[in-house]
Simulated scan of single mutants.
Amino acid sequence: MTHHSLKATKKTVHLGGFSHLLTPALIIDSGDTIDVETFTGYYIYDKAPPEFLTPEFVDICQNLPDERKIAGGPHLLTGPIYVRDAEPGDVLEVKLEAIAPRLAVGFNAIRPGWGALPEHFTQPALRFIPLDLANNIAEFPANSRIKIPLKPFFGILGVATPTSDRNSIPPGNYGGNIDNRELQAGSRLFLPIYVPGALFSLGDGHSAQGDGEVNVTAIETSMNGKISLKLRKDLSLRTPIAETPTDIITMGFAETLDAALEQALKNMIDFLKHFANLSAEDAYVLCSLAVNFRITQVVNSPHKGVHGMLPKSILSPKIIL
């Protein structure tokens, strides 16, 4: 195994979406580890305070080549990373080994027409929020004594598909803009692979987010991470599955929360049938007794997200992915 460093530069990031036509930012072997940098805030950099700006980020915002601008999403993603021998039908295991803010400031934005209450909050608003990295908190509003614990994660973790201009806003079976705050350091995400090399990208760092992400954004933060990427030719998945230190997570993405819940539930039943050897009926009952279904996000139009959390503590023997 080899350890790599992937810096975020105008040659190694892409904007707005996923594409199988992008030149890889890095080529690795299965099992390699990577220190990776991400930036956020491409479209608001001209309104940002000095502490939000680094020379590399400003260079990206001012000089990103047109061929690295993929679609209309707002997200700046680092990658794609090409994994040798990855083929469609394989599964990519993404291990999130470390995640930390790279700057002591993030932002939150209200965008007109977006969010859970677009008719109530019609005016744009942009707030830069200081991060107390020493104490791992953010006080919001300022001087309110309301202290939000920082629980950093990457909102976007995804692979390319045969679509050359897939927008980065809606999540899907390829991953993408999942915005699942459970996927913190120590977690693993399993993604179906659709194109040779997988072409994995990540970004959209969040220092803190509530389930739902109701006003469209979290504390959006430029983020550093350490990940490992491993090919799993022994697995076959149609939808992403995740594992945290405490839970197995299935996901559902659809235009309504009802449909997203149904998908997440069906995916959990399929998981229990395959990995725990339960009948469909027993799995359905177990989901009602012990699985917690939560709203992931309601703002990544057109897909809302629901995830189901199965406590690993109730499983015996232990399920090993």
Rank of each mutant, 00 (worst) to 15 (best):
I137E: 07
D90V: 00
F154L: 15
S19V: 14
D179M: 08
L126I: 10
G252W: 09
L26C: 07
N135D: 11
A254P: 05
A283G: 09
G17C: 11
G197E: 05
N277H: 14
N173V: 15
I27V: 10
L202N: 00
I27A: 06
H120Y: 01
T78C: 03
K11H: 15
Y194H: 15
I156K: 00
V36I: 15
K273I: 12
P152G: 10
L26G: 03
L202E: 01
G172K: 10
P65F: 13
G203I: 02
S301R: 14
I249H: 01
K304P: 02
V291N: 06
E67I: 00
F57Q: 10
I28D: 01
F57E: 07
S187A: 14
S201E: 11
V105E: 02
K233S: 06
K318I: 08
I227S: 05
A283L: 05
F275G: 00
K7F: 12
H14F: 05
A280I: 09
L117E: 14
G205W: 04
L133I: 14
H75S: 07
S30E: 02
P317W: 08
L117I: 12
A254W: 04
E51R: 15
A134H: 09
A185D: 04
V36F: 12
D258H: 05
K312P: 04
H307D: 08
Q184H: 02
S222H: 12
F39S: 03
L278I: 07
G17P: 03
N173A: 15
L6F: 09
P80C: 06
F190W: 11
A242C: 05
S30D: 02
A185R: 07
I27E: 14
L150T: 09
P24Y: 02
D258V: 10
K318T: 11
F153R: 09
G113R: 11
F293W: 09
N167D: 11
I137R: 08
V36T: 13
E182T: 12
S301A: 13
E255I: 04
M309V: 00
F18A: 08
